[in-house]
Design a protein around this nucleic acid. Structure first.
Lengths: 154, 154
DNA sequence: GTAGATGCAAATAGTTTGCAGCAAT
DNA sequence: ATTGCTGCAAACTATTTGCATCTAC
């Protein structure tokens, strides 16, 4: 379940496909690879463009169908960054996002204590925790931080 | 800035309109009221239907334009619940959501400690905190909780 | 060979926009 | 009277779907 490399991801996809009687097509592998190589939080549109720009044309319909499949197989999760359209990211482990409202830069954060707090809030209200999405809207501190650091352009 | 009653909200809207040379129309008031009375997290569509079902027909175009205006005036904020379309809620104060994946019921939570934790995570990374959106996906515990409680149907 | 996958194009859903007429100030 | 606001219809963007063709197994 812990995916570290692209090969792990591809194997997990192959397993999922086999278990479900689905086929391993070049389009599916190419889409998985494109997202993996993007590294950020691409949208369906960006993935389609990236593929077409490269070697393999894949229709938008297939991109969308494959993204759903990759989410179902838990290789990806969909994140809601801006309004209007979905973004996807590799489902390595739960993490959250800080989104700079000025530069639109997205940085990822991970914090055990926060995670525990969220789970406990959920469970104290009688729910069984599944997952969460946390987006923090912020600004690069104008005073002492010009806008670089752990950059992760989308 | 602290809105408690519909009257407060209406006054804030009137002030905002005046300050910006905009007009106070029955459509704008009706939309504000509809959202206030809904109490949950309605979508543009639900608001339009609610208004038409009632006394006043308001076109979707106007509903969307007014929702933007109400967000600009900080009377509402938009929340992303499901995929595909926006929802809006009265901007009383920061709070988060637990969304049951089985029943789609949404409950609101508010927790000071969580709030502090999120701010501090943000600031420790050199960002100036603005706001956040936290959605917890969960399930009503099947064992001891059939699916009622602090219900808040959308 | 067969069931599942793809591309295409059309359909849908949500939202935005141009414009002519309407109404708040 | 003026300028902003509304409804309508068309445009747009993101996503989904039906169907004929293609391909992995």
């Amino acid at each position: 379940m812990s995916i570290k490399t692209y090969e792990d991801a591809e194997q997990q996809l192959r397993d999922y496909l086999t278990e479900n009687g689905l086929r391993c097509t070049i389009e599916r592998l190419a889409i998985l690879r494109a997202i993996w190589e993007h590294g950020g939080h691409p949208s369906a549109d960006i993935i389609a463009d990236q593929l077409s720009a490269g070697k393999l044309y894949v229709s938008r319909a297939t991109v969308y169908r494959t993204l759903d499949l990759l989410v179902d197989s838990e290789l990806l999760c969909s994140v809601k960054l801006g309004e209007g359209h979905r973004h996807y990211e590799v489902n390595i482990s739960q993490h959250d996002h800080i989104i700079c409202q000025t530069t639109e830069r997205v940085i990822e954060i991970r914090d055990e204590e926060l995670e525990r707090k969220i789970r406990s809030l959920c469970e104290s209200r009688g729910f069984c925790y599944l997952s969460h999405v946390l987006e923090i809207k912020a600004d690069c501190e104008p005073a002492d931080n010009g806008g670089k650091e752990d950059s992760n352009s989308d």
